[in-house]
Design a protein around this nucleic acid. Structure first.
Lengths: 345, 345
DNA sequence: AAGCTACGCTAAATCGTTTTAGCATGTTTT
DNA sequence: AAAACATGCTAAAACGATTTAGCGTAGCTT
């Protein structure tokens, strides 16, 4: 923090102009007819004294913060924290830092957060959008700000996004339950019209309609506490005693649901089959191990960063920003929890 | 992003000087004898037009980035991601943003990261230090940079830190195993001399020496893959068939260890008692539920932010920076996995 | 009436970069 | 020999805030 050298100091010490030093440092020396001799001299010197340009000055001048905002629904959720981990290194390697935040799926909070990020002039956004912030997203897009949505998106907006095929992967999962002999399949989901949730619901409905089986749906409000979820699922099971399997459309619904199943002393998969969305250590270690719809977290992360960095370069080049709409497929990882119900005696 | 108004625009539109506007906006109007009438006029106008000061300009001028660096060992580890979640809001509320990174407990990587954060002039650091970065930390402290270590610290340096009483909490856990009748207690830990690990090891040794029981220690290298951990624990158990219980000194060692125990077809707690460090959903949902040494994550987070914000204020006031050294206690959450071994027949 | 103080505001320097426009000097062209 | 061009570098404006030093006026003292 002491004796920080500025570009002016460098210029003085080398008996050159600030301009020259700056041009060399930014790789614009050749195109500005700076001699190789001078280039080498500058490069050698800045390396020797380990000159570090002031980010603030640079940002002020060129308007770039070299920061990407990562707006997750909840950074402590393993799905989001693993993505956070996976996007980190490549962002760093490209000279970007990532600031994170948790939206809690709350539109008002998200709006506030976006505002603070705008104030900071972050260069790009990676967002799990909440319902009701279409305006803000649209606004960012209109201003040609590099941006990617993930986990869900707004059908009406032409933003880039990375999602999975929720309908198909859920349909596959439900079909798997049916193949295993389950016939009264309950669907526990969030009370939400977001794309990921409606996609999963649709997959459920389609699979059941194709087989002529009855539907049992439990919708739980966003932001419910775990104990609320547990109770809701217990009631759901009490009201519909015929249910022989459950599909949980998110990881934490799955965790809460498993607790409910336990409290009701139902055995998995005999009394009740179980499939949950999103894989995690909990499901893998559970006894019995839980069948999950596993999102390709690495691929999602990779596509997100790739696309964002690409947009950042296009923006730099003042070109048109191409917004990738990417839909990946999720894998059904079959484990014991869906291996068929007890034969009636 | 369009028609951004600058402080100069505001000044012109109000027929005032830039200075006056700036003083008002920074709450230094009164002490500079700006009339109440002018103050009101400015405040009203900036609210009306929703004027947003340029962070870059401000940072360039006053050297403050309003950013806190959160350097975790691995942001996708539930222990760290839950802390990330818990420090986020209070930081935001105080006008700070948090950039995160994962050190992977790699000194070289950590050094690089600190360098990039220095370049960005982050205002404060919250760090899980790795071995070998004493110099860098010392350097930050010498430069009066607000900083808190957590999870572990350097005994030789007077940095602030938040840790738990590893020796005592481990000793309690081991004592609990002894009370439950276990006599051949294995200790699975990381091959590391960091304070948290040596503290836990010490607790183990002390508890056993007090009871005259034999020690069985397995040290696993940092950064081992899960399958390596599983194999190591399996070998450990094969080599020491007399072991009747295991203490895992980290959450992921615990997960790997449990897989090993399963593969060896040992039943918990009858064949082998288990306690793991750090609570998480996996341990709570495991069958049988795993006894854990539970760190007070909320309190840790709270103390971290509180202390950092405090240091930031002191720095602002050019006062001496008080570095809090905080040791909290962890709770032993007793569950089935340590409830006593099978009676020999 | 001259000298002070208080009051209310402002000019201008500063933070450290990037970048545009242009200045010498030397070399070709015609 | 004048005009044109190439070469190698630099002066200075700009980005948008904060802050120091100080300016003019009015009222009060002596």
């Amino acid at each position: 923090m002491k004796n920080k050298r500025t570009i002016r100091d460098i210029a003085n010490e080398l008996q050159l102009s600030i301009t020259t030093v700056s041009l060399v440092l930014n790789g614009k020396a050749r195109e500005n007819r700076i001699s190789q001799e001078v280039i080498d001299r500058v490069l050698k010197f800045v390396k020797e004294v380990d000159y570090r340009p002031n980010h603030f000055a640079r940002s002020l001048r060129n308007g770039k913060s070299k920061i990407i905002a990562f707006m997750a629904e909840d950074i402590s959720n393993p799905f989001f924290s693993s993505i956070a981990r996976l996007i980190e290194d490549s962002a760093n390697n490209s000279g970007y830092k990532i600031v994170y935040c948790s939206t809690e799926n709350n539109a008002e909070k998200t709006r506030e957060l976006i505002k603070t990020f705008k104030d900071r002039r972050v260069d790009a956004y990676i967002i799990t959008p909440t319902e009701g912030i279409e305006k803000e997203i649209e606004n960012l897009v209109a201003n040609r700000v590099p941006l990617m949505l993930f986990d869900r998106y707004f059908a009406g907006l032409s933003t880039g996004y990375v999602v999975i095929d929720n309908e198909q992967s859920t349909r596959n999962a439900i079909r798997h339950l049916i193949e295993q002999g389950y016939e009264k399949i309950g669907f526990v989901t969030l009370d939400s019209t977001q794309t990921q949730m409606s996609g999963r619901y649709l997959g459920y409905v389609n699979a059941l309609e194709a087989s002529g089986l009855p539907q049992f749906v439990l919708r739980i409000p966003y932001g419910s506490t775990e104990s609320f979820i547990v109770n809701a699922v217990m009631e759901f099971l009490s009201e519909h005693k015929e249910i022989d399997s459950l599909f949980f459309s998110s990881n934490y619904l799955g965790v809460g649901g498993l607790k409910a199943v336990r409290q009701k002393n139902l055995s998995i998969p005999g009394d009740i089959g179980v499939i949950a969305f999103d894989d995690s250590e909990v499901f893998r270690m559970h006894t019995p191990a839980i069948t999950t719809v596993t999102q390709p977290v690495e691929e999602i992360s990779h596509k997100l960063v790739e696309s964002i960095l690409h947009q950042l370069m296009q923006e730099e080049a003042a070109g048109d920003i191409l917004r990738n709409e990417i839909e990946l497929s999720a894998r059904l990882v079959v484990r014991e929890s869906s291996s068929g119900k007890k034969k009636p005696v």
